[in-house]
Simulated scan of single mutants.
Amino acid sequence: MIEKRSPWVGDLIHDEDADRRGIVTDVRGGTLWVLRPEHGVDQWTSESPERLTLLEARQS
């Protein structure tokens, strides 16, 4: 089930702009989300958290 809340570190997301799934690794200054792919190595950023769809929240 997809929840409606802002994604945060450790959450699995779908980035609509990049059309890829990933995990939030950092949020810098509340304006820049650093993301990595679910599998493999790479990194990209997003300045639009409203374009990140939360797929699965990190387990606490």
Rank of each mutant, 00 (worst) to 15 (best):
Asp26Leu: 14
Pro7Ile: 00
Trp33Lys: 10
Arg5Cys: 04
Trp44Thr: 00
Asp19Ser: 07
His14Gln: 13
His14Arg: 13
Met1Gln: 10
Ser6Cys: 13
Ala18Trp: 07
Arg20Pro: 00
Ser48Cys: 12
Ile2Met: 15
Val34Asn: 11
Val9Asp: 03
Arg28Leu: 11
Ile2Cys: 14
Pro37Met: 01
Trp8Ile: 13
Leu54Ile: 00
Asp19Lys: 01
Arg21Pro: 02
Pro37Ile: 01
Glu50Trp: 09
Val24Met: 05
Leu32Asp: 08
Val34Met: 12
Asp11Trp: 01
Arg58Ile: 00
Ile2Trp: 14
Ser6Ile: 07
Gln43Arg: 14
Arg21Ile: 01
Asp11His: 03
Met1Ser: 11
Leu52Lys: 02
Asp42Leu: 11
Gly29Arg: 13
Val34Tyr: 08
Val9Leu: 06
Gly29His: 11
Leu12Asp: 08
Val27His: 07
Thr45Arg: 12
Thr31Ser: 13
Ala18Arg: 00
Glu16Ala: 12
Glu38Ser: 08
Val27Ile: 12
Thr25Tyr: 06
Gly29Ala: 14
Pro49Phe: 03
Leu32Ser: 10
Pro37Asn: 04
Leu55Ala: 02
Val9Tyr: 03
Ile23Gly: 05
Leu12Trp: 06
Arg20Gly: 06
Ser46His: 02
Val9Gly: 05
Glu16Gln: 10
Arg28Ser: 11
Ile2Pro: 11
Arg58Val: 01
Asp11Ala: 01
